[in-house]
Amino acid sequence: MFEARLIQGGLLKKLLESVKELVTDANFDCSESGIALQAMDNSHVALVSLLLRSEGFDPYRCDRGFSLGVNLNSLNKILKCAGNDDIITLRADDNSADSLSLSFENPNNDRIGEYELKLMDIDQEHLSIPETDYDATIIMPSAEFQRICRDLTVVSESVTIDVSKDTIKFTAEGELGSGNIKLKSTSSIDKPEESVNIELGQDVSLQFSLKYLMNFTKGTPLSEQVILCLSEKMPLLVEYKMDIGYIRYYLAPKIGD
């Protein structure tokens, strides 16, 4: 028996919005510790990994580990039927479950919507992502990162990210011209969520596809801050932390000439 009741149901709605562009079908791996999902996009250059810890639910019950194969588009459509303030409960029998039950309770507890989503068998490869000491780690406002990606898309389909001592620079060059945005590291004691923090082991310069980064910024509503982790010739990690877990996106760099 699997049951997970999320008081902040709106979070689940936002989460689905942040993965559905990248991945169509995925397994939700349920265990005692929580709900996890890992899936690559069709081209295998981008990956999304999310975790919702069991402590974030009230109650959370999962007797044994199993996977729920879900078409994310369908789940997203059903979640659109939930109000932003609704409490969302997910239920499934166990491994033999062929559907996922969802119930949406409004805050007054006088309207309850119940839905069933058909599940599917998804044979998905799972990559083991090693713990990495990145050359550069940047914590910055998520809305700023979203704006930079959106603005530079006007100029090019790729962006070069250069990180040096106290500056992160985003550069795009295209047929119409070029553009760049430099952010200096800042610290605001009053509003730490507005500061740009750069932790640097060594300088990094990497190029990425803006189309994918734009997709990753669908996670912006989940957190006021975004964490960018870069190492030479390694995939970029873009992370949005939430109270009850995280969503991480990985993107392979464009390398060589």
């Binding site: 690559m40 081209s43 295998h44 250059v45 981008a46 990956l47 490869e125 799972h126 990559l127 083991s128 992502i129 090693p130 190029q207 596809s209 390694m234 995939p235 990985y250 392979a252 760099p253 464009k254 390398i255 060589g256 000439d257």
Partner: peptide, 14 residues
């Protein structure tokens, strides 16, 4: 032309 390898290139399968 720059190349973009798939993520399997970086992350080993278990």
């Amino acid at each position: 032309v720059k190349e973009q390898y798939s993520l399997e290139f970086y992350f080993n399968k278990p």
